[in-house]
Simulated scan of single mutants.
Amino acid sequence: MKASHADAVPSAALALARTELGEELEFMRLLWAVAHGMSSTSRVMEEAMGVTDLQRRVVWMASRFPGITASRLASVLHLHPSTLTGVVKRLVQRGHLLRQEDPLDMRRALLFVTESGRKLDVPDTYTVEGAVQRLFARIPRETLSEARELLTALAEELHRADEEHGGEAPPSEMAKQAQ
């Protein structure tokens, strides 16, 4: 297993860096570490299993909710519909998903997992959900509940900020000062 950059930094230096960052940046540093870990795990999954974490999540959801609409799936996974369209297209091409038009509304797509897709929907050590399962096995329920509340509040705050600006980034204070 490769040593990470953080492993190469002495723990005293890390402790000092954490102190100097302040609460907000330290919290964000941890979020970045999670995002990086998910991205790295996704690359390993693609090499080992032939699918990324996102593709596996799509298969996972479609296997648990056969006939789920693409729009509902995008909402549940917090994806832009155009992002999901590309993921679904690749999974259909590889034979892991079946995409059918909704007979009641031809504009909607219904998603079903194929036999090939079901083979991807098995527990595996090298997946993001495997890491989450291992975490859940060792963290007290009350801690998990508090973490869920915190992450939910952060997601709501980010969503609120996005809605307030219509999905477009407002000019930042730094950008205004640079002009």
Rank of each mutant, 00 (worst) to 15 (best):
A3L: 05
S4W: 03
A8I: 14
A12M: 08
A13R: 10
A13T: 03
A15V: 04
A15K: 04
L16C: 12
L16N: 10
T19M: 14
G22L: 05
L25D: 04
V34A: 10
A35N: 12
M38L: 12
M38Q: 09
S39D: 06
S39C: 13
S40V: 14
S42A: 07
S42Q: 08
S42H: 01
E46S: 04
E47T: 15
E47F: 15
A48G: 06
T52Q: 07
D53N: 13
L54C: 01
L54D: 05
R56A: 03
V59N: 00
P66K: 03
G67F: 08
G67N: 10
I68N: 01
S71H: 15
S71C: 07
L84W: 02
V87F: 00
K89Y: 05
G95E: 08
L98N: 01
R107M: 05
A109V: 07
L110V: 03
L110K: 09
F112T: 06
T114P: 07
D124R: 15
Y126H: 11
V132Y: 14
Q133R: 12
L135F: 09
R138C: 12
P140D: 15
T143F: 03
S145P: 02
L151S: 13
L158R: 09
L158K: 08
G167H: 02
E168R: 11
A169N: 08
S172Y: 03
M174D: 10
A175S: 08
A178D: 02
Q179G: 14
